[in-house]
């Protein structure tokens, strides 16, 4: 993969491939049925992945501050919880784009290509509809977490001495991810409908979830 234009190549840092690396070390592309949108999700995924590393660093820092300097931070646990939560939520979208969610494929496996395509379409539609409902519900939740009853903007905070607006931010983030999830499933539906029967089945078979 060529380095992206806005990211000049650094001589001392080994070039990082744009594609995710699979456990066995080989890059695996986003399934084509996920469309451009799926690739966009993939592009920004490393930000959230690095959040886990940051969380680790913060916990180590907290242990250090508490044990060596006897001055524990008030923000470490809240912040790591927040970073992990962001990663978990985004991870759901990431797995949806990469077709990595676990499935039980008893019927799917014995189905012929036509039925398999019908299943793919049906599952994507149902997932799109439910994600849409959840996005709407998340909006109702955000309305309570981001605004005061009078209508002024006030992000819900943790209420601790550190009092970061993490609950408000996380709820807003959930709203965005659920909207993105809905869009992703709509795109999957469209692409499964468009695809020829034999093509759809073959393509969706790339996920780990499939037996």
């Amino acid at each position: 993969m060529a380095p992206t234009p806005e990211k000049p190549a650094h001589s001392d840092i080994p070039p990082t491939p744009d594609l995710a690396i699979e456990p066995d070390g080989t890059p695996e592309p986003v399934p084509t049925v996920s469309g451009l949108f799926g690739r966009a999700v993939d592009k920004i995924s490393s930000i959230f992945a690095l959040g886990f590393l940051l969380a680790m660093g913060i916990l180590i820092f907290e242990i250090f501050m508490r044990h060596v300097f006897n001055s524990p931070t008030l923000w470490a646990h809240e912040t790591t919880t927040f970073l992990s939560a962001i990663g978990f939520v985004f991870g759901g979208l990431y797995c949806a784009s990469r077709n990595k969610h676990i499935r039980v494929v008893i019927i799917y496996d014995i189905a012929g290509p036509r039925f398999r395509r019908a299943l793919d379409i049906g599952i994507s539609i149902v997932c799109a509809i439910s994600s849409g409902f959840f996005a709407w519900a998340a909006w109702l939740m955000v309305k309570r977490a981001a605004f005061k009853p009078g209508g002024d903007i006030h992000l819900e905070t943790t209420g601790s001495a550190f009092n970061a607006p993490y609950p408000g931010l996380l709820k807003i983030f959930m709203l965005f991810v659920l909207i993105a999830l809905t869009i992703q499933f709509v795109i999957l539906t469209i692409n499964y409908v468009r695809a020829k029967p034999d093509y759809a089945g073959a393509n969706s078979g790339t996920g780990t979830g499939h037996d």
Binding site: S71, A161, F162
Partner: peptide, 17 residues
Amino acid sequence: EGMVQEVFAAAGASPVN
């Protein structure tokens, strides 16, 4: 969460969250 944490900090303790 809440005021308890701040009060103890003011009293010289090291609150851990």
